[in-house]
Amino acid sequence: MTVLETRIIDIFVDRRMDEAYAFASRPENFPEWAAGMSSSLHREGDRWLAETPLGQATVRFSPPNAFGVLDHWVMLPGKPMIYIPLRMIENGNGTQVMFTLFRQPGMDDMNFDQDAAMVRKDLSALKRLLEQQKPAGNAGS
């Protein structure tokens, strides 16, 4: 069994978890904050597809759940499936978002560092989006 090196990348979002999860769990919202989920992400039947420089990717998302799980799996032509564990947990009145980055087989240090930097950028974009939205129930405020 191959064990992959991991990095846990996390960020605190000043937004209630139920509200943060309601936004982040919708696949159609991923392109708004996840650069790797290009603007070409679209649903085709029961599958989500995205155009990438490496070809068309099929993306599978975890079903909506009460546990803050936002895992997804990316399949590229001729490549092993990439598993992306992503979690949201309640932290006080806000939400802790945690991304587990796996170092892919054959990935050098520079590419792993670049991948981690992209994840940090994506999580920062999610934080900005969530913190800029008006909280539910305060639409008239």
Score class of each variant (00 low, 15 high):
1 M>V: 14
2 T>W: 12
8 I>R: 15
10 D>T: 14
10 D>H: 15
13 V>T: 11
13 V>Q: 12
17 M>F: 08
17 M>T: 11
23 F>L: 06
24 A>C: 08
30 F>D: 03
31 P>K: 00
33 W>Y: 11
34 A>T: 02
34 A>I: 00
35 A>Y: 11
35 A>K: 14
35 A>G: 14
35 A>V: 13
36 G>S: 08
37 M>E: 04
38 S>V: 00
38 S>P: 03
39 S>I: 03
39 S>T: 12
43 R>T: 02
45 G>H: 01
46 D>N: 11
47 R>H: 05
49 L>T: 04
52 T>D: 00
55 G>R: 05
69 V>E: 08
71 D>T: 01
74 V>Q: 02
75 M>S: 11
77 P>W: 00
81 M>D: 04
85 P>D: 06
86 L>V: 10
89 I>G: 05
89 I>T: 10
94 G>D: 07
94 G>E: 04
99 F>T: 01
101 L>D: 04
104 Q>L: 15
106 G>Y: 00
108 D>T: 08
108 D>Y: 07
111 N>L: 11
112 F>G: 10
112 F>W: 13
114 Q>S: 12
114 Q>W: 09
115 D>C: 13
118 M>K: 15
119 V>W: 09
121 K>S: 15
121 K>M: 15
122 D>F: 07
122 D>K: 08
123 L>K: 05
126 L>D: 05
127 K>C: 12
128 R>M: 12
129 L>A: 06
130 L>Y: 10
130 L>H: 07
131 E>D: 02
132 Q>M: 11
135 P>I: 00
136 A>C: 04
138 N>I: 01
